[in-house]
Amino acid sequence: MSMSADRVNVTLIAGGVGGAKMAEGLAALDNVALSVIGNVADDDEFHGLWVSPDIDTMTYTLAGLIDRDQGWGVADEATRALSVLDRLGHDTWMTLGDKDLGLHIHRTARLRAGDRPSAIAAGVAARFGVRARILLPTDDRVQTRVRTDAGWLSFQEYFVRERCTPDVRELAYDGIEAARPTPEALAAIGDADLLLIAPSNPLVSIAPILKIGGIEDALRQSAAPVWAVSPLIAGKVVKGPADRMMTALGQRADALGIAQTYAGLAEVLVIDTADAALAGDIAALGVTPVCRDILMPDLAAKRRLAGEILDHFARTRGVPAA
């Protein structure tokens, strides 16, 4: 194991608000060197600008700029530009605040100049004072599509415009077959002491990362163990549509269903104490359950959970806990 006595290299596979919460907790620990491989399959174009919701939520969260009431967007935001677009007859169901638009303008200009998406994301994070490394799994374009009874929708159409109300019949990840992993993501996987899958939606936040050619193979080949944190507590999601999506697609929407999803990849699944009764069934899958209070309503809870995960990891490796 490569971790030093002082720092543990943690690579977090993450998307959505749950991923950002886990990242914030880990980033608050002095003994963690954090790299985050974020989801880019939610990305889309609005008003001629390229928007990367999950990467931006991660960046704003780790920069201390996030609107904590929403869990996304920038704090102390206004939508004056959007109000002008609305007055001019544009669809404005995708809420983009004025400060947020500044980031999208910057990203789009650099993309048009031919810069790598990974370099753009890293530059933004640095300018915003983020110490963790925010990495893209691919510089290629991958987009999640959702089939409903009304036909195929982009993820943002399903998630924002339709408010996750239509039943999900099928998911597709456009461009996934041709997508290639970034060298930064592969290096972060190879250099990790602990690979942690965040409590993110396994279908639309984690799967589009794992399905990029070479990512899951790198996780399996890494000397570091793969652990995961359940996004479900007592069969319910804290935020987002993961439970309803899993049910609609014929999967168990509880901690055991999460274990079934990651079985064969994750050695450990951190579940809530409310799901302790499922521990035996999870263990039968070859996944070790670890019961903790995994709800993260504030920074103290995020830091506590991150610390408990790192302490348990240290004990499994025979290293004194921090």
Rank of each mutant, 00 (worst) to 15 (best):
A5R: 05
D6V: 11
V8N: 07
L12W: 06
A20R: 06
M22G: 05
G25P: 10
L26E: 01
I37E: 06
G38N: 11
G38I: 08
N39Y: 13
A41Q: 08
F46Y: 14
H47Y: 15
P53V: 02
D54V: 03
I55C: 05
T59P: 05
T59I: 12
Y60G: 08
T61P: 09
I66Q: 12
Q70C: 08
G73V: 01
R80L: 09
V84Q: 02
V84M: 08
L85R: 15
R87S: 08
D91W: 10
G97T: 00
K99A: 13
K99T: 10
L101I: 11
T108D: 02
T108I: 02
D115E: 15
R116D: 13
I120L: 03
A121W: 02
V124H: 06
F128S: 05
R131E: 05
L135D: 02
L136W: 15
Q143K: 01
A150T: 05
F155D: 03
F159V: 06
R161E: 11
R163K: 15
V168N: 06
R169T: 04
E170P: 06
D174M: 04
E177L: 15
I189H: 12
I197R: 09
P208S: 07
L210H: 13
V226P: 14
P231K: 11
G235S: 02
K236E: 09
G240M: 11
D243C: 04
T247K: 04
T247Y: 05
A248I: 02
A248P: 04
Q251I: 03
R252V: 09
R252Y: 15
A253P: 07
A263S: 15
L265M: 04
L265S: 00
E267F: 01
V270K: 04
I271Y: 02
I271A: 09
L278E: 08
G280R: 15
A283N: 14
L285P: 03
T288I: 07
R292C: 14
D293H: 08
R304G: 00
L305A: 09
A306L: 09
E308Y: 11
I309V: 12
I309R: 03
